[in-house]
C-alpha cells in the first residue's frame, strides 16, 4: 500500500509541475519574444518563416537607443516624474494614515469616511475639470499635473492600506514615546515609518508601476516631445500612418522600458507577497 501511495503522489506532483511549467512558459513567452525580436536584423524580423532566435544577435538597436539623445530625455523624464510623484505620495499618504490610525481627533471618522468615498469616484470624473483647472493656471505642457497632486496624499486606497497596517501595530510603542516627551512628528518618523517598512515597500512598488506605465494623463498634459515619457514615446513609435514598422527597435525600446519594472519587482517581491497575502489586497 505505501508504495502505491508514493507512486500516486509522485505522478500527482509531476502533473502539477507540468501544469505550472506550461503556464509559466505561456506567461514568459511574450517577454521572450520581445527580447528575441529586439536582437534580430530587419530581415529576420520580416522573415515569413519563424525565427525563434536570431542567428547572430544584434545589439545595434540598443546601441542606437542608448546613444539617442531623445531617448535619454524620455528615460530621464520617466525617472524624474516617477521619483517625484512616488516620493511625494508615499510621504504624504503615510502622514494621512498616521492621522487616521494613531491619533484621536474630533471629526476623524467623518474625514475618514470622505476619504473612503473617493475610492468609488472613477478617475474620469475629476479628469476633465482638473484639466480645465490646470490649463487655466498654465500647467498644461509641464510635469506639474502628473506629479504635484500626488503630494496631497492623492491615493485613498493606499492610505487605507497603510492605515490598516498601522492599526495592527501595538499602541504601547508610541504611548511610551509620548510620555518621554516625543511629539507626533518624531513618533511618525522614528517609530511608525520603520515599523511599516514592508507595507511601505509594497505601496511604493505599486505606485512606481502605476506612474512608470502611466499613459492616460501624460498624453494629455505632456504636450511636447521634450516632455514625453517612455510610454508615450513607445506608443508613438508604431506609426499607423507609416508602412514601415521598425520592430527590432520598437522591441529594444520596450525591453529598456520594462527592465526597471522587472528589477524593482524582483527586489521588492518578498514584501509585496507578504503584505498582499497578509491583507488580501490587489495591486
Amino acid at each position: 500500500m505505501p508504495s502505491r501511495f508514493v507512486v500516486r503522489r509522485g505522478i500527482y506532483r509531476l502533473l502539477i509541475y507540468l501544469l505550472l511549467i506550461a503556464g509559466g512558459l505561456f506567461t514568459l513567452f511574450p517577454l521572450f519574444w520581445m527580447v528575441s525580436t529586439s536582437l534580430k536584423t530587419m530581415e529576420e524580423a520580416n522573415a515569413p518563416r519563424v525565427v525563434w532566435w536570431p542567428a547572430r544577435p544584434q545589439l545595434e538597436a540598443y546601441a542606437r537607443l542608448l546613444t539617442d539623445p531623445d531617448w535619454l530625455v524620455y528615460f530621464g523624464n520617466s525617472v524624474f516624474v516617477t521619483l517625484l510623484a512616488v516620493g511625494g505620495t508615499v510621504i504624504s499618504i503615510s502622514l494621512a494614515a498616521y492621522a487616521f490610525s494613531r491619533i484621536e481627533w474630533p471629526g476623524r471618522d467623518v474625514v475618514f469616511f470622505l476619504m473612503l468615498s473617493t475610492l468609488m469616484l472613477p478617475m474620469q470624473t475629476t479628469l476633465v475639470p482638473q484639466y480645465v483647472l490646470f490649463s487655466r493656471i498654465g500647467w498644461v505642457g509641464t510635469f506639474n499635473p502628473i506629479t504635484i497632486p500626488g503630494f496631497f496624499a492623492g491615493s485613498a486606497l493606499y492610505i487605507f492600506l497603510l492605515r490598516q497596517f498601522m492599526m495592527s501595530l501595538p499602541r504601547e510603542l508610541d504611548e511610551a514615546a509620548l510620555i518621554d516627551g516625543a511629539n507626533h512628528l518624531q513618533i511618525w518618523w522614528h517609530i511608525l515609518l520603520p515599523a511599516c517598512r514592508p507595507i511601505l515597500a509594497t505601496v511604493t512598488i505599486f505606485l512606481f508601476v502605476a506612474h512608470w506605465n502611466s499613459l492616460q494623463l501624460p498624453v494629455i498634459y505632456l504636450t511636447r516631445r521634450s516632455l514625453h515619457t517612455l510610454p508615450i514615446a513607445i506608443a508613438a513609435m508604431r506609426n499607423p500612418q507609416m508602412v514601415e514598422q521598425p520592430w527590432p527597435t520598437i522591441m529594444a525600446a520596450s525591453v529598456l522600458t520594462l527592465l526597471p519594472l522587472v528589477a524593482a519587482f524582483l527586489a521588492a517581491q518578498r514584501q509585496v507577497f507578504e503584505s498582499v497575502i497578509l491583507s488580501g489586497v490587489k495591486g
Binding site: 539623445p69 531623445d70 530625455v73 530621464g76 524624474f80 521619483l83 517625484l84 521634450s226
Partner: peptide
Amino acid sequence: LALLLSACAPKPT
C-alpha cells in the same frame, strides 16, 4: 533629489 535630477538631465534636443 529633484534638483539633482533636473540638473543632470540631458538637454532635450
